[in-house]
Design a protein around this nucleic acid. Structure first.
Length: 219
DNA sequence: GCCCAGGTGGGTA
DNA sequence: TACCCACATGGG
């Protein structure tokens, strides 16, 4: 495996080339949470349609969204796919979120992040990526979010095995990168951007990619 | 028509 | 632990 400092250089290279990413794409911390659940194994364009429906119905608020009947919620989020599961998951999350924080994202920031992560993971439908997205982008904790792009990029650059598990990949990021919310926030956004541009594979798409020189054949 | 997308949970060996 | 599968829509 390559040395972890490579990762720091890769992120800084992308940051210099592309500038601030303004990740996560949402207008409020609560919208981050809704998006994090709806985007599970789903293209973001479909999530946007679903969130637009929720917003248009005036339901992009914890208490109001919890009060919506299940079938109505399913109809609103249908474009994001897996709509039956996701409607249940949203309601289960909201039960906890309202009981625990009265639906106030800012109050999550006062908790111990490790304990909060454990509570989130205990909820049906909240796995490690969704939990970490909530911790970083809705609660403001310095947590790196691992996703499919991250695994592809890291394994392509020999930072981890192709079948590495979530926590292993996260440890690499937490070891190599500053434990700073703004930095880790940006790092994930840059990796998503790199993933969308197919920087994780050698192909004509890589022409002009800032990471091009990291893609030289490794002897 | 076919493959894939910013995952997760449940079942089985 | 390590697979396998269901879950559903929309775009390329």
């Amino acid at each position: 495996m390559k040395e972890f400092p490579l990762l720091r250089r890769m992120i800084d290279t992308l940051a210099a080339a592309w500038g601030p990413q303004g990740w996560w794409p949402a207008e409020s911390p609560f919208e981050v949470i809704v998006g994090a659940i709806l985007t599970q194994n789903t293209a973001w364009t479909n999530v946007e349609r679903a969130i637009a429906n929720v917003r248009a119905a005036g339901l992009l608020h914890p208490h109001r969204l919890r009060a919506v009947p299940r079938e109505e919620l399913e109809t609103l989020i249908r474009p994001s796919g897996f709509f039956r599961q996701k409607a249940e998951r949203l309601h289960l999350f909201l039960d906890w979120f309202i009981a625990r924080f009265d639906g106030d994202c800012a109050r999550m920031g006062n908790e111990d992040p490790d304990l909060l992560r454990g509570e989130l993971l205990a909820l049906k439908g909240i796995g490690p990526e969704t939990a970490d997205a909530i911790l970083c982008y809705a609660a403001g904790f310095p947590v790196f979010v691992v996703d499919a792009y991250t695994l592809r990029l890291f394994s392509r650059h020999d930072l981890c095995a192709a079948d590495a598990r979530y926590d292993q990949v996260q440890v690499i990021a937490h070891t190599a990168l500053p434990r700073d919310t703004a930095y880790l926030n940006e790092a994930h956004g840059l990796i998503v951007q790199a993933g969308k541009r197919h920087c994780f594979k050698q192909s004509p798409d890589c022409a002009g990619c800032p990471l091009g020189h990291y893609l030289e054949p490794q002897i």
